[in-house]
Design a protein around this nucleic acid. Structure first.
Lengths: 388, 388
DNA sequence: AGCATATTGGTGTTGCTGGCAACAAATTGG
DNA sequence: CCAATTTGTTGCCAGCAACACCAATATGCT
């Protein structure tokens, strides 16, 4: 192996990656469209597509009969037999999905657990299922890697799980044993960051370069941050921990804790209690809140919305995103009256920061984390499509 | 002019820019050091340096006698006769500086004003001085452009000043008339963003890729944000407005306004009042606070520090920077007891986010904005050193 | 002093990449 | 059936960085 590739070869890698990224993220495209999108020469694009097709990364179909003047241009599609595995270990289950190049979820499974998994449990369970998939559902497929979405703090430099409180993991390395068990490259990242990436690529925040993503789960509030089109991880990889910030609460009556952090105040358990629910998913929670008798549930919703809106407008002032995406129960809070919520945020934001700001509830459902995790696994391929 | 440069030529541009950037930002370097830093081949670096020298951007000196084994390597320096002009229009004066390639401030001037300048005033004053400089102090120099640091909100796409409250500017275009008057390219940006860039390149945040910069001035609190090594401007260019965020205040006794924003609570005027000063710069303020009798001044410092620390720890949790730089009177607040302040911030931050976090007061003085503005003017040259 | 060794600059050559022009192919529309 | 239009294909060219080889200059050992 060469110590260092030439800079001209890097151009080739970049261009190959750009073509592959286009067909991966924006669906099948004709060669002529690719030349327009990349700005490269026709002959160059032809060469790049041929190279990708030889490696089995893309396929060329007959031109679609869209009846335009001129010679029809063959359509280039990502090969759906090239897949990445996305994994999301949680307290009660491990979810695994195989995502095709092109973005389609090919298969998925939810493995229920009887106890909170250790790293060894998780590795064994995952390796077992993936190995089975390799000889069944995914036989004939090329698996390029695994991505793991961990509900906790993940060190960016090496993917070490510094702290995943609900799993009870502390300074655990899951990447190495998984990679050894399967012989595949493994990427590990925080779940909210990967959710942000998924919403950015395939969900509510498509085409937005500056995105704030906030997700409310049973365990707390996490976030992801895309600025200038790139996922921001911070110096250690721990960026996005909105749940641990201290919200500005103007009305002291709205405060439930002394000097508490956002996830103490805006909190799924409090909503469940207000809706008089003992258990249930987000869907059940939304329904219960809508049908709850008396003013208690409404008051709690209003209170949490207020605190959340204050936090979001702070984020809008500091980061000036064009899109803020709310996932999990935060989406429920907003959906009770989206216009009112958005107006509340805008009112507390700088006018110029608010003028281009959109707010949306998450578009992708449960598959969000699996897609984001798989995307992290695809990253290496997209950076260097022909690389060994 | 070509419609589109070839991708191989882009490699050349990038490499030329990288060499020039190295000698600009990190001082004179031997050719052999440049090859090591760029990772390029010796012969390539020789070619690049020659091309830059032919354009008068760098000069080569005799090897310094550092007595190392092997053939001595000539030292490459940025040509200090290549300059960019940095400008900072303010309420009471317009500051202008000529910054050399290499980072040195070559000349500067402070033009006192009798009234708040209009855009036309500012353009006339600036153009006048720069024209005089061109035939005197800067005769023989090549001026590559102007950068303007505006105390207000600047639209990223075209440099339009959307709102500069203290100057009374609203939707004003200063770039076009300045560019026409001088025949030079003009870049406009928010003052705090440019201050952040200056601290990042030449000040307290050197070598840090993720930096939060907060500056406290007479008019309020602005900020700049460098993440992943790049200046974050947000979707419209208005990122960094910490002054308009609502701080988390745990102790209600520390609150001075109802539902006020950070710059209502943490505020230079309140400090001046507590120090019983009517006028004075930051130096005078620091001295007065240190010497003020009675507990009033101390209490106000403690109160403002608390509120500021809460805001900063929120930023640390969300952005996970490796360095937070405090400028202006915020630096004074911290300097009263740096260790105590930093500990307060750390205590309210996630442990993992705090472990790599440094906090510092700004290292560059008054020249900060001029250097940052000039750097914005240099950006075009560094992106394409031989371009037209 | 003399020689081997180490490091770097200089020069010409080589290999790779994308652009380009000319030609061929495929389709529409009259 | 032909003109117009658009795109794929082919062969050639220019730009760029790497490489090999030689020259220059220093150190260190004998």
């Amino acid at each position: 192996m060469k110590e260092r590739a030439t800079a001209v070869e890097a151009v080739r890698r970049t261009n190959l990656g750009e073509v592959l990224r286009l067909v991966h993220r924006h669906g099948p495209r004709s060669r002529s469209l690719l030349t327009a999108d990349t700005g490269l020469n026709r002959s160059t694009v032809a060469d790049l597509v041929t190279a990708l097709a030889e490696r089995g990364l893309v396929t060329e179909q007959e031109p679609d009969g869209n009846k335009r003047v001129g010679r029809p241009s063959p359509v280039v599609s990502a090969n759906p037999d090239v897949v990445a595995i996305g994994v999301n270990p949680e307290v009660d289950a491990i979810e695994i999905g195989a995502v095709s190049l092109g973005g389609g979820l090919r298969t998925r499974a939810r493995l229920e657990l009887t106890r909170v998994p250790t790293v060894a449990d998780a590795v064994a369970t995952i390796a077992d299922l993936v190995t089975r998939w390799q000889s069944e559902e995914l036989s004939g497929c090329r698996i390029v890697g695994l991505g793991v979405a961990v509900p906790g703090l993940v060190r960016a430099s090496d993917g070490l799980v510094r702290l995943a409180p609900h799993l009870g993991w502390r300074d655990e390395d899951i990447a190495t044993p998984l990679a050894e068990a399967l012989g595949l490259p493994v990427a590990v990242d925080n779940d909210a960051s990967l959710g942000a990436r998924a919403e950015h690529l395939f969900g509510a925040a498509r085409e937005h370069a500056d995105v704030v993503y906030l997700n409310g789960g049973a365990s707390g509030i996490g976030g992801g941050l895309i600025l200038d089109g790139t996922l921001i991880r911070g110096s250690g990889g721990y960026a996005g921990e909105w749940g641990q910030t201290r919200p500005g609460i103007a009305n002291e009556a709205h405060r439930r804790t002394h000097d508490g952090v956002l996830e103490d105040e805006v909190n799924r358990a409090r909503l469940m209690a207000a809706a008089m629910l003992v258990a249930g998913d987000d869907h059940a929670l939304a329904a219960a809140l809508a049908g709850a008798p008396g003013p208690t549930a409404d008051e709690e919703v209003v209170r949490q919305r207020r605190v959340l809106a204050a936090t979001i407008s702070n984020a809008a002032n500091v980061l000036n995103p064009s899109m803020i995406v709310l996932g999990g129960f935060l989406g429920i809070l907003r959906d009770r009256d989206p216009e009112g919520f958005d107006a509340d945020v805008r009112e507390r934001s700088l006018a110029v920061a608010a003028e281009d700001l959109e707010i949306a509830s998450a578009a992708l459902g449960q598959d969000r984390l699996l897609i984001g995790a798989a995307e992290a696994a695809f990253a290496g391929l997209l950076a260097d499509p022909l690389g060994s």
